[in-house]
Design a protein around this nucleic acid. Structure first.
Lengths: 133, 133
DNA sequence: CTGAATCCCTGCCGATACTG
DNA sequence: CAGTATCGGCAGGGATTCAG
């Protein structure tokens, strides 16, 4: 009726009354849940990183939260850990194919927030999580 | 390099190291933040609703959280309150134009979660927050 | 009917310190 | 270099009660 361009065809699984973890929307929000998460994903969208490179890129992010996020994103199938043998330990973090597909999602989030904020303030917001380059 | 299809052209405001509330992505996530929020939006995407219609559609949602969410969505410019004179009090909630633009955002969240879950389980997830009919 | 106020409990996240 | 362990403060959210 309202006529959104995108077209989820008539979807059988759209009549629930509580936020179940099985809902695709909840799955995505769970993957991105928590502070710093989108920034970590954004950093990895630019390329694979080591732990210390991530710390360097996000200096205000504590060790605890960073490892929490990496574990969470690993659970969600977004990030892959590549541990290499030898000393000192070298570990690379990279997005999985599924993780790369978060690009358009972050883009959609960015677009709505950008439009909403320009309509409110008329100003450009200088910030952080833009998905691509 | 990685080559995402969508194209945020080179965006000047993408080099920050902390999750500031001015970030468009943060703005959107803040608007959708918290449990039940996407389900309320989804319900309103189907048409305007009264308070009690929302309670009926989402029976497990408590009064406190419902009014919290409606206030939050009002603050975010997503939902508009239409109070009509007379007795008993009649109030209608409807999405603003900005709110309707959340349709594609929820669609993007749905799509990623749907693909991620089918690749994990091979099964269909029966759930809730699908944006459109 | 449409909410707001209160209470309490849980889980997040930040800081610090410590290990392989 | 790459994390884990522990603790404390604070905000989110559920149930109940009260108000316009």
């Amino acid at each position: 009726m309202v006529g959104h361009p995108a077209g989820l065809p008539d979807d059988p699984r759209a009549n629930v009354t509580a936020p179940t973890p099985a809902c695709p929307v909840e799955i995505t929000l769970a993957a991105l849940h928590g502070r710093w998460t989108t920034l970590v994903v954004r950093e990895l969208l630019r390329g694979d990183r080591s732990y210390s490179e991530l710390r360097l890129a996000l200096p205000m992010l504590s060790d605890k939260v960073l490892s929490d996020r990496l574990a969470q994103l690993g659970e969600a199938g977004v990030v892959e850990r590549d541990r290499r043998p030898g000393w000192p330990p070298r570990v690379r973090y990279a997005l999985t194919p599924s993780g790369h597909r978060l690009g358009p999602v972050l883009q959609a989030l960015w677009d709505w927030g950008a439009e909403a904020s320009t309509r409110d303030t008329g100003a450009e917001s200088s910030c952080a999580t833009s998905p691509l380059r």
